[in-house]
């Protein structure tokens, strides 16, 4: 059994006008949940498409479960949920799902059994109503997303690759997706997903890779990435609006290097010699109603902002949270 579910070495992909991915190398441990993080246009989707042989890299090698990814039959062990979702609109859900399973080499009988299981599990089939017999375009958007998700998993893939799986999901479907991801990991499957939502990644992932402008910024386990970042940040919550005095303390560049201001909640990065205790004293002295003052490891979001910088953050980043 190979240790790595996926290994990319020196992958480069050029399009006519620009380089989408440059010399990207990464390794996804088997049985882990892996996050591919980066702003929109960072090259996440291009990377994923190359892994699935939807497009070919200009250079570099891709290994899936220990074999080159073009090995015949290997793609059948991958499940893929593209960012742009879509299904044949006029097809009956069951027939569509059976078709998707057959494309992955599952025989019809096994497919039918699993389809029924999944439809029931994601509440698309109940004694009253079986949406499996409906046509795709009779389903609501949320139901269509569920169907697509089932299509990704019907062949019981060893490696599941989800491109921006949370975008466009309502909270209930998002919860269902998280549950399934966790269960897949328990069953020893590897899940790779791309996202620009750092909070999701921080909660779900064992390891991450942050890429920006087609290049790797950092990678490693979430714990490792955080501890390598060395710094401790201050998490601060205030009761009521900060007074002018409090604002002045927070604006003191001798203590506070950077601050992520969320109105009532602040994540504060101290200056190199800044003493958190001194900051707390001055805040209390300025009359702040401190509800929470905690030394924390920086969030992935903070690390991301730190390393990629504001320039690498494009319009896609407002999705934080």
């Amino acid at each position: 059994m190979p240790e790595l579910a996926l290994e990319l070495r020196g992958i480069t992909k050029r399009f006519a006008e620009h380089v989408a991915v440059r010399e990207l190398s990464l390794a996804v441990p088997r049985g882990s949940v892996y996050g591919l993080l980066g702003p929109n246009g960072a090259g996440k989707t291009t990377t994923i498409r190359m892994i699935l042989n939807v497009i070919a890299p200009d250079s570099g090698s891709i290994t899936v479960l220990g074999s080159p990814h073009l090995t015949p039959g290997l793609l059948d062990r991958l499940g893929y949920l593209p960012e742009e979702r879509g299904l044949y609109k006029k097809m009956q859900v069951r027939r569509l799902l059976r078709f998707l399973a057959e494309l992955k080499g599952v025989d019809g009988k096994t497919a039918d059994r699993r389809i029924t299981e999944w439809l029931e599990r994601l509440s698309l089939k109940s004694p009253e109503k079986d949406w499996g017999n409906a046509k795709v375009d009779e389903l609501s958007r949320g139901m269509q997303q569920k169907v697509q998700f089932i299509g990704t998993l019907l062949h019981d893939p060893d490696v599941v690759i989800l491109d921006e799986p949370f975008s466009g999901l309502d909270p209930i479907n998002a919860q269902a997706l998280k549950d399934v991801v966790v269960e897949l990991k328990r069953r020893g499957k590897t899940v790779v997903f791309s996202t620009h939502l750092m909070d999701n990644a921080e909660r779900l992932c064992d390891s991450v890779c942050i890429i920006a402008r087609g290049e790797k910024v950092l990678d490693g386990t979430v714990v490792g990435v955080k501890s390598e970042h060395h710094k401790l940040n201050v998490a601060l919550s205030l009761g009521g609006d900060p007074s002018a005095d409090v604002s002045a303390v927070l604006a003191d560049r001798a203590l506070v290097l950077k601050m992520d201001d969320n109105n009532r909640y602040f994540e504060i990065e101290m200056t190199a010699g800044g003493n958190p205790q001194l900051l707390l004293q001055r805040l209390v002295g300025a009359g702040a109603q401190v509800q929470r003052f905690e030394l924390i490891q920086p969030s992935l979001h903070q690390i991301f902002l730190d390393r990629v910088g504001a320039a690498g953050v494009e319009e896609g980043m407002q999705g934080h949270g």
Binding site: R49, L52, N53, V54, L75, D76, L78, Y80, P82, E84, R85, G86, L87, Y88, K89, L100, L103, K104, Q148, G151
Partner: peptide, 16 residues
């Protein structure tokens, strides 16, 4: 065209 506009093409070409 349907496969393109509904984006189902990408799922399919990741399998065949």
């Amino acid at each position: 065209l349907e496969e393109k506009t509904t984006r189902v093409a990408e799922v399919i070409v990741s399998s065949v």
